[in-house]
Simulated scan of single mutants.
Amino acid sequence: MSNTNINIRIEESTKRDFESVCKELGMSVTTAFTIFAKKVCREGRIPFDVSIDPFYSSENMDHLRRSVSALDSGNGLDRGLLDDDE
């Protein structure tokens, strides 16, 4: 079986992070993409959910903007972050 090359464009920081994770897992980027490609071919689908994160919905972003505006104008409650012990 002969091999072929695939060229993709990806942000430099994403590439570095991906290479780091692959290295930590003991595999190369080529091996990771090969695993992904074989799974796609075997299952006939992307092997994970691809969806829009509801956090970034227009309603939630509007709510966050209003909350930040209220905090900036001194009319909101800064609740901070909760510790695990609370």
Rank of each mutant, 00 (worst) to 15 (best):
Pro54Asn: 02
Ser20Asp: 06
Lys23His: 05
Glu11Asp: 11
Ser20Met: 10
Glu59Leu: 09
Cys41Tyr: 12
Gly26Ala: 12
Val21Arg: 03
Ile35Phe: 14
Met27Lys: 12
Gly74Phe: 02
Leu64Phe: 13
Pro47Val: 06
Phe36Cys: 09
His63Ile: 10
Gly44Asn: 03
Asp49Tyr: 10
Tyr56His: 11
Phe18Pro: 02
Pro54Lys: 06
Val29Ala: 03
Gly76Glu: 01
Ser73Cys: 14
Ala32Ser: 08
His63Asp: 14
Gly76Thr: 02
Glu59Gln: 11
Glu59Asn: 07
Phe36Arg: 07
Lys38Pro: 06
Met1Leu: 07
Asp85Cys: 08
Ile46Leu: 01
Val68His: 03
Ser51Arg: 08
Gly44Thr: 01
Met1Arg: 03
Thr31Val: 12
Lys39His: 00
Thr14Phe: 05
Leu82Phe: 01
Val21Gln: 12
Asp62Cys: 09
Ser20Trp: 12
Asn60Gly: 09
Glu19Cys: 11
Asp85Glu: 14
Pro54Trp: 09
Val50Asp: 04
Ser2Met: 13
Phe48Ile: 02
His63Leu: 14
Asp62Thr: 15
Cys41Lys: 11
Arg42Trp: 04
Phe33Arg: 03
Ala32Gln: 11
Leu81Phe: 14
Phe55Tyr: 15
Ala70Phe: 08
Glu43Lys: 05
Lys15Gln: 06
Ala70Leu: 02
Asn3Gly: 14
Gly76His: 01
Asp78Arg: 09
Phe55Lys: 00
Gly44Ser: 03
Val29Lys: 00
Thr30Trp: 04
Gly76Ser: 07
Asp62Arg: 05
Phe18Glu: 00
Phe48Gly: 01
Lys39Trp: 02
Lys39Arg: 07
Thr14Lys: 07
Thr31Arg: 08
Asp62Ala: 12
Leu77Val: 14
Arg45Cys: 02
Ser28Phe: 01
Ala70Pro: 01
Asp17Glu: 09
Glu19Phe: 04
Arg45Asp: 03
Arg65Ala: 15
Glu12His: 11
Lys23Arg: 10
Arg66Val: 06
Ser51Glu: 08
Ser73Gly: 10
Asn7Ser: 15
Arg79His: 07
Asp78Thr: 04
Asn75Tyr: 08
Ser58Pro: 09
Tyr56Phe: 12
Asp85Phe: 06
Phe18Leu: 04
Gly26Lys: 02
Ser58Cys: 03
Asn3Gln: 13
Ser51Asn: 07
Gly44Tyr: 12
Glu59Tyr: 05
Ala70Trp: 00
Asn75Leu: 08
Asp78Cys: 00
Ala37Leu: 10
Thr14Ile: 15
Ser73Arg: 13
Glu24Ile: 05
Thr14Asp: 12
Arg65Val: 13
Ile8Pro: 00
Met61Phe: 12
Leu77Lys: 10
Asp72Phe: 09
Asn3Tyr: 15
Val50Gln: 15
Lys38Ala: 03
Leu81Cys: 10
Glu43Gly: 11
Ser69Ala: 15
Asp53Cys: 04
Phe48Cys: 05
Ser58Asn: 10
Asp62Leu: 15
Ile10Ser: 07
Glu12Met: 04
Ala70Glu: 10
Glu11Cys: 06
Lys38Ile: 11
Ser57Glu: 00
Val21Thr: 10
Val40Asp: 01
Ser69Asp: 15
Met1Cys: 06
Thr34Leu: 10
Glu24Tyr: 06
Ser67Pro: 00
Met1Glu: 14
Glu12Gly: 01
Asp62Gln: 13
Ser20Asn: 10
Leu81Lys: 07
Leu81Thr: 13
Asp17Ser: 02
